Simulated scan of single mutants.
Amino acid sequence: MKLKPFLIAAAFLAAPTAFAQSTHDAHGSHGAHMMADASAKPAAPTEGTVRKVDKAAGKITIAHGPLENLGMPSMTMAFRAGAPAMLDQVKAGDKIRFVAERVDGAFSVKQLEVVK
């Protein structure tokens, strides 16, 4: 009868691994579904303040509110300008409304409007 405790112990040891794999698979497909949903709907503009314009690097540093379409909280970060003309439209201190997306692995400003 010593085999019974061994089988019970083995079942308990194997259960977390099986559970982790099943939840990982579920989250993996859920994450892919969520990404598809986020890219399917248009992103809402977010308000921000331009902190820096780096024409040489083609980037705009923006202190911004949450970016719902990217699942990103409020922060300050540099974005690639989606078009070179954007770099001439803004200067440090400007209040803006913008749309950011992930393009080829980089966060990029796709739309930009200076708020008067």
Rank of each mutant, 00 (worst) to 15 (best):
K4L: 05
A40N: 01
T17Y: 14
F19T: 12
A85E: 11
H64Y: 09
H24R: 04
K4P: 02
F12G: 04
H24E: 06
S39R: 14
K55L: 09
D104R: 02
K91E: 13
R97D: 15
Q111N: 11
A57E: 03
T61N: 04
P84Q: 00
A44M: 05
F107S: 12
L67K: 03
K95Y: 15
A38V: 05
V103F: 04
K95W: 08
A56S: 15
D37A: 08
P5N: 00
R51D: 13
P73S: 05
V109C: 12
V103W: 03
A92L: 05
L7H: 12
A63M: 05
P45K: 10
A100V: 02
M86D: 05
A40T: 03
T49L: 12
P5R: 01
A63T: 08
L87G: 15
N69L: 01
D104Q: 04
A9H: 04
A15N: 10
M34W: 02
T49P: 13
D54Y: 10
A78K: 06
V103R: 09
A56N: 14
K2T: 09
M77W: 03
G48I: 06
Q111E: 13
I62E: 14
G82Y: 11
F6N: 08
K55R: 12
A57M: 12
V90E: 09
L67T: 11
T46A: 13
D54F: 06
Q111F: 11
A43T: 07
K116V: 01
A44S: 04
P5I: 10
G28T: 04
